[in-house]
Amino acid sequence: MPLCIQGGNSKAFYGRKIEAEQFDVSANSGVISYEPTELVITVRAGTTISEINEVLANHDQMLAFEPPCFSTTATAGGMVACGLSGPRRPYVGAVRDFVLGIKCLNGKAEILNFGGQVMKNVAGYDVSRLMTGAMGTLGVLLEVSLKVLPTPDYELTLKGEADDATAINLMNQWAGQSVPLSAASFYDNNIFIRLSGHRNAVIAAASQLQFSEYSDGEHYWQSLRDHEHDFFSDNKKLWRLSVPSTTKPMNLHGQWFIEWGGALRWLKTSEPVEQVRRVVSMAGGHATLFRGGNQNDDVFHPLSAGIGNLHLALKNAFDPKKILNRGRLYKEF
């Protein structure tokens, strides 16, 4: 019997719709171990992201990839399965970069451990990272170990005006010049950047840039991370376009929100699905119908034939009867 794995149900809008028995795994929760000096936290997959954030904050540490919480119920398992990361991602890494190990259940109901709690580990294939972003199609996550980082001493948000092409240029330039960037976005002719690090170093760097300090920075980045910003408040179809950071403003009509220093672009458009995918493919990126699209159709960017076949073969390696979240990522598996 096919199963639909469900954690906090905060990202039900994400991915394809599937008809399957609900398998609620949210009760498997709680922090298993956390040692600030080891920079590692191990949690059961049902632990909420907000609980993890709180535990870490008590020791001035954080999940550096700033996972989005589209609702307070969002869990660690969902976070890893969806593989989404927030504004800090281009500068410190994505969720996959911080996953050190997992315990999971494959489609044959075997409990397996991969990776571990140490920083460097090359024993066996990197199954922990393979599962990250696999939308639960390869296994049910039971526990995850994550690398954590110290919270920066000091953060400052700056705001300035520019058009989109200039903004993209600037954000790329700064990233190549040792500016202590920890986030960079552009919307409605405004660039917002966040600088993080040692206090004096951040202040010195800020004084080099002709931008003004923006006092509500913390709220701004949180609202962008969790899609509470006004841009995301309507119910229009929302595209997530992941492209090379230097990609020029793209030839698609609609409203744009650029983040990740140019590498992630949110688009609300009425252009046909095929047109969006075509333009994004040409730019060397991929397009996800993030929210509000037809969840019975392709949500994620179609794979090339060769890569698609490999996906099928890997699905078969983990879940030969195609029980787990079948169709959530792509129709065929």
């Binding site: 393979l130 990250t132 090379p244 060397g284 890569i307 996906h311 990522l329």
Partner: peptide, 21 residues
């Protein structure tokens, strides 16, 4: 096969991580 891209992530499984190591 082309695995990964010049963008920060790609559609589908993280085959790049699987290849590494």
């Amino acid at each position: 096969l082309e695995i990964g891209a010049d963008s920060l992530d790609s559609a589908g499984y993280d085959l790049l991580a699987l290849m590494t190591g």
